[in-house]
Nucleic acid binder design. Structure first.
Lengths: 109, 109
DNA sequence: ATCAATGATCGTAATATTACAATAATGCAA
DNA sequence: TTGCATTATTGTAATATTACGATCATTGAT
């Protein structure tokens, strides 16, 4: 199929999965890390930093934007991307609490 | 294409992406949550809990096993799955430190 | 207005993922 | 052994993802 049966899962499960998916590609990880490193927002520099075609970078940026993780503002002829602090914190918190759920459990296997 | 150009990314980036990928599906999130909830390991109960075919669950379990997140031990005729505590903690720590990287940054957009 | 630069979008090919039926493999019980 | 329950595997169809060339839209500069 290729299409997940989202109907049978809770909203929380679907959301968590989608958050993970947004970051489930090395290029998107690299973009985020680059945005963090440069602090100042980058745009086409990403195309040069990572070794991917402009169209490909643009596609990944779109996914990150859709996920809400980054936002872009027009800066002259180019576009300045940066991390959306609010959403970032949400992600951070949600994932942390997902991982915390298995704290201090008795093992069985 | 459909294939990521892993060669051009760092090991860390590829690893992080793969970790995310392992959890980038609601069924796998649901399985993990079920394993946590039941504490005692589950096996075919997952097929009944989630509304997916046995083959599909088995496939997802395999991916989680490949990711190292869970392990299964034979328990009579059935198989008992549970979270691998060590790997779980690794995941937790790695993701936490990824998200911490953007702490206290000046915003620019 | 023309041009160059930047970035988005479209179209498309290659590959991956998801889901399931069918079938095989394994272990237990009668 | 035969039969049943459980799980893995195989095969396959539908869909998604990744990557890129080509093209369009926008902006700034000349």
């Amino acid at each position: 199929m290729g299409a997940s049966k989202t109907e049978i899962f809770t909203q929380e499960q679907n959301k968590l999965a989608q958050m993970m998916k947004a970051l489930a590609h090395p290029a998107r990880i690299a973009i985020i890390q680059e945005l963090i490193k440069a602090n100042a927002c980058i745009c086409n520099d990403l195309v040069e930093e990572l070794g991917l075609a402009q169209a490909t970078i643009s596609q990944h940026l779109k996914e990150l934007k859709t996920a809400g993780l980054i936002k872009g503002t027009v800066e002259g002829a180019s576009i300045c991307y940066c991390i959306d602090e609010k959403v970032w914190k949400e992600y951070k918190q949600q994932l942390a609490s997902f991982f915390v759920a298995y704290e201090n459990k008795n093992k069985c296997c």
